[in-house]
Amino acid sequence: MRKSLRLLFFCGIFLYLYVPIAILIINAFNLNRYGLRWDGFTLKWFTAMAANPGLMEATRHSLTIAICAASAATAIGCLAAIGFTRYRFVGRRILQGTLMTLMMAPDIILAISLLVLFVGIGIALGFWSLLLSHITFCLPFTVMTVTARLQGFDRFLLDAARDLGASEGQLLRRVVLPLLRPALLSSWLLSFTLSLDDVIVSSFVTGPSYDVLPLKIFSMVKVGVKPEVNALATLMVALSLVLVVISQLLVKERDKNGKNK
């Protein structure tokens, strides 16, 4: 009795989480345009998607922004985390606090303030305003991830490296960065995802010249869900699945190498 209840609960949760995605994927292959019933298997929505220049352009834009923002946020976040952990300087706590605030603040607030800022200093709304905004909201997450990893280290590792003759550059290249690799990767993946599916901030800070995917989809579904969108969403689910598997494999590899107790 108890066992079957537990199984039921377990299944319920999984259904709740994955049924919507499953329906979306099924409809991507459904001949029926409105997904009301199963009319047979087709790949025509994928071809329709590829033939839609606006959608493809928005996808390209989104991936470009996501890759650039994730890379920049990871690089800046890594250096910031090293600075926060290694040095004690005036304003360190305030700086850390403001990063936290940035993470907690509602996106809409961030979006409006960024818009006001860009208009105020005369940055045209488009690629650059979008990239800067995405770096901004990804940064707290990368700093947090890298800081957590840094704090897990034996703090004498850096001393040991210097003791053995490492200069600052060698210390970073041969000890700190290799040890941070898993954290850097997860920061990058996290930022990539955050950037890719952001709607609120992007809708404020981009202009008509630079349409991104979430906004494009949003405008397309205003008049009913188009099956091309289902096809595109299916591809994105597949992509995120691949990313998750990669990151899990990386974590496993790190454990195999044996973290210091």
Binding site: D154, F156, L157, D159, A160, A161, D163, L164, V175, P178, L179, N257, G258, K259, N260
Partner: peptide
């Protein structure tokens, strides 16, 4: 050179 209390071996 120093031998640290925690050994401080490079885990990677």
């Amino acid at each position: 050179n120093t031998v640290f209390q925690s050994y401080a071996l490079f885990p990677h």
